[in-house]
Design a binder for these strands. Structure first.
Lengths: 246, 246
DNA sequence: CGCAGTTTTGATGGACCTCAAAGACCGTGG
DNA sequence: CCACGGTCTTTGAGGTCCATCAAAACTGCG
């Protein structure tokens, strides 16, 4: 995957133009956003914000992946979100960041200082509307993930994560997820463990087990091949007839 | 606790007037809402919506408590939210309910048919703004709960739940949570287990253990007394110096 | 090659689940 | 009043899944 930084400064050619918080904006509204936006880049592994820090800006992920996570005093950590291109970071009306944000791959953000963004939101309903829609979707996703964390077995958790990544990967390339698809795992075993509420050893063992039973195939440590998507779905424990896979 | 149904039809005396989705509305805006609102009541235990059902309305909880939950085919269930007075049910722009909603106590909802509500949202920015704020708060809560589900021990989970209920109970009566406070547990052991990702037996055992070590005292099965709030906080595993308790 | 970071694999133990039964609580009806 | 049934809760015994501790294998890189 190519995570080279995003160079264009033109919203018209922006890769997340049609999905991000600005996607509902008219050309004249976009101009206002354009005036106050600026880009920031982070290398893989770099922190973007620590929980408790004051947040001077809000931002959209343009390219790359970041994680949103929480850490307890004794070091236990739980990832609470995976931030992909078009996802929004920060919230209007909050001074302090509630969670850590860390770049997993090289990362480009389209940033807005908080105050000007809030002002613009007041005068541009389409931004608030879109942000509400995105936030409601995020809330549904978070609640679905609560089922994974609270009730699924380690094997089901791994299958659920693989399916999510497969779907997002397919969406990124504007295809439907299908049999025979392959994708890169953008996360280390430890990051997967933090997402799933497991240890990295358990993650490794369950991935090996899924490989052994033929649900997935691996090329190296990170490249995953799905021979039978329905098989993977059934391993998640989710309802099979719950509508379309995507 | 008295969950007698809410009788008044006047927004001015509505108990959730200052916290619900309508809290930012001006008097004239409130009139429009008033015209399209209607009340529905449910008895304890009754379902409000099943996941997959079409949703004809959105609503605010006026009195009582409801749960938002998800169930797998084999019966494993996970509660994903606790709906208290002023909380909002449903979302504009979605046809199908993603989760089950069940009344835990007797429940009164202030309902709006979806289409008129959406129309009103378009012309009344203060509703959308407030709904965005509430949704962002809900999202933060959901993410905090993910840490509980993914990383906390059974004992820490119980303590976390008791603390949340203690805070909400204090907020309801507009007091600060304090030493010596007492409150009713509105949930059965099974409902607590579904919230915490545990079995009801484990919930029962851990409550007994907390009682035995003096962190809580019980009057009957449902009345809880907290002799030392800091003690309870420290049992949650959360950061102690993380700002005010409430 | 040697080293650091990541992943795999193994051995062991413990936290929590499962199955089972008894006890507490509460409303109903004899 | 007390017996009765239903629901909720507690307690016990045993098993299992996953965490923990430990070490080896793999990967990429100077």
């Amino acid at each position: 995957m190519n995570h080279s930084s995003f160079n264009s400064r033109d919203c018209g050619t922006c890769p997340i133009r049609h999905r991000a918080v600005c996607s509902r904006c008219e050309p004249d509204e976009l101009e206002h956003l354009d005036e106050i936006k600026y880009y920031r880049t982070y290398e893989a592994g770099q922190p973007v914000i620590w929980a408790g820090d004051p947040m001077e800006f809000v931002a959209s992920v343009v390219t790359g992946i970041a994680t949103l996570s929480q850490t307890m005093e004794d070091g236990r950590t739980q990832m609470v979100g995976l931030l992909l291109p078009s996802d929004f970071i920060g919230r209007p009306g909050r001074e302090i960041a509630p969670f850590d944000v860390v770049a997993v791959t090289d990362l480009t953000l389209c940033c807005f200082r908080k105050k000007p963004f809030e002002d613009l939101m007041g005068s541009t309903p389409s931004i608030g509307t879109r942000l509400l829609q995105m936030t409601l979707d995020e809330l549904d996703s978070a609640r679905e993930w609560m089922l994974v964390l609270g009730r699924k077995t380690a094997r089901e958790k791994i299958a659920s994560l693989l399916l999510i990544i497969a779907r997002r990967d397919a969406a990124l390339y504007k295809r439907l997820p299908a049999d025979g698809m392959a994708f890169d795992l953008p996360l280390t075993r430890e990051a997967m463990a933090d997402y799933l509420g497991l240890t990295l050893e358990t993650v490794s063992r369950q991935i090996s087990a899924l490989k052994k039973s033929g649900v997935i195939q691996l090329q190296g440590k990170r490249q995953v091949h799905i021979p039978d998507l329905q098989r993977l779905v059934s391993e998640t424990g989710d309802d099979l007839d719950g509508g379309p896979i995507f």
